[in-house]
């Protein structure tokens, strides 16, 4: 039985979970996925083994819940639709959101897990349920596509 209060887990991993969720759902629906993720985690938390990797556990739930939210809305992930306040007032980030939205879902998730959430390719592969190689390739292809896209946006 763990003695780490769940509030501490939310504090420590909340931003990472939001990044994973928003990469799948786009920023508008990310709050729903974020809540669903922590609610599911809270339900299972007392039975989590003491030596569990909480970060990877949460990323896996976040990925699943975000996919559920997108599916429930019955439409493709549309990160381009609208950006939330925090991003809205940092105008430099808006083109990046749009470019992320144009990646394939797998590339987007691989890029976010590796470059924003700090997961190794092996950890990202486990979360996404794909091979290590596929995760590495999706991340590299995603970054290349982003770079391409952002450079084109500037010209």
């Amino acid at each position: 039985m763990t003695a780490i209060p769940f509030s501490e887990v939310v504090e420590r991993h909340g931003p990472m979970v939001w990044r994973v969720c928003s990469a799948v759902t786009g920023p508008v629906d990310a709050d729903d996925a974020w809540s669903e993720t922590f609610l599911a985690a809270l339900r299972a938390y007392p039975r989590l083994p003491g030596d569990a990797d909480v970060r990877a556990w949460l990323a896996t739930i976040a990925h699943r819940k975000a996919v559920d939210v997108v599916r429930a809305r019955g439409r493709r992930a549309t990160p381009v639709a609208q950006v939330p306040d925090v991003v809205d007032e940092a105008p430099d980030h808006a083109p990046l959101w749009r470019a992320l939205g144009r990646l394939s879902p797998r590339q987007r998730q691989a890029v976010v897990l590796h470059h924003l959430a700090g997961f190794s390719h092996a950890e990202a592969a486990a979360v996404l349920g794909i091979s290590h190689d596929a995760a590495r390739r999706a991340s590299a292809d995603g970054i290349a596509a982003l770079r391409n896209d952002m450079t084109r946006d500037e010209t």
Binding site: V10, G14, D31, W34, S35, F38, L39, V86, E89
Partner: peptide, 25 residues
């Protein structure tokens, strides 16, 4: 930006607490 980020986080946490309370968790 930090203050905005804190407000956003507080709102998210309040929503989670309400949902957790409703679910008996």
């Amino acid at each position: 930006a930090d203050a905005r980020e804190r407000r956003t986080r507080t709102a998210r946490e309040a929503r989670l607490a309400a949902a957790a309370s409703d679910a008996g968790l």
